[in-house]
Design a protein around this nucleic acid. Structure first.
Lengths: 123, 123
DNA sequence: CAGGATCCTCCTAGATACTG
DNA sequence: CAGTATCTAGGAGGATCCTG
């Protein structure tokens, strides 16, 4: 039996990974769009706009590996590959939405702080 | 009066900034330590461990600019500079803790998904 | 259509040296 | 002590070419 410290250290590693993941450039955007329902690769790319094939592929692979997204291939020609959120993926939206809503509610305070800070630096 | 779309687009920019901020390597760690109370630069660096002077400086400046941290200088020699969370900084801990707790609660499901994914890739 | 493989570029972050 | 300035390496992300 490992001491509690070990377990908490491991937890921190996972927490850090998740914060980093949701903080990357595309993950939250992809998850948000998939929150509307199942979607194909090209449709996702078109709707997001500005994401390269490579980054969409990488982002989806990461999400699939962690169990947030499921990938379905219809064996046809040309192939149709669709993605959708798993239950875990939908649940992830809850805490992420928490930060988003907190930010939206506090934009005014943040912006005021920035302007005050920038003024104090220039003056 | 701007249309709603404009406002939402601007919100997304802020939300993206905040997600990116809390997703960077040191911000959450610094905020968490400062959550315990006011702390000096060197104490913060020693307790966090592994963070360079430069990155601690940059992280603190960003937090200060956004109004999450306040900086106090005692004019002495050598100078004593201490940092503490503002009210806004303490409030930020709430949604961030939300993601952290969600992650901690779901580590098992994530880890299981990863192992299943990795097995399916190798086999 | 979906995505693998490359190449390239920029930014982040770390190391180091210096200052008030 | 608490920074600033400079240099550099590594990784994230974009552009492009190619394939089943």
């Amino acid at each position: 039996m490992k001491p509690a410290l070990k377990a908490e250290t491991e937890d921190c590693s996972y927490i850090s990974q998740m914060l980093s993941r949701v903080g990357d450039k595309w993950t939250v955007l992809v998850v948000t769009y998939l929150g509307e329902g199942s979607m194909r690769f090209s449709e996702l790319q078109r709707r997001i706009g500005g994401i390269s094939q490579k980054m969409l592929t990488v982002t989806l692979r990461n999400l699939e590996r962690d169990g947030f997204v499921s990938r379905t291939v219809e064996p046809s020609s040309p192939p149709r590959v669709s993605y959708e959120l798993t239950a875990l993926g939908h649940e992830l939206l809850v805490p992420v939405t928490g930060i988003a809503e907190w930010t939206r509610a506090n934009i005014g305070r943040i912006e005021a702080a920035r302007q005050a800070f920038d003024r104090s630096q220039n003056g």
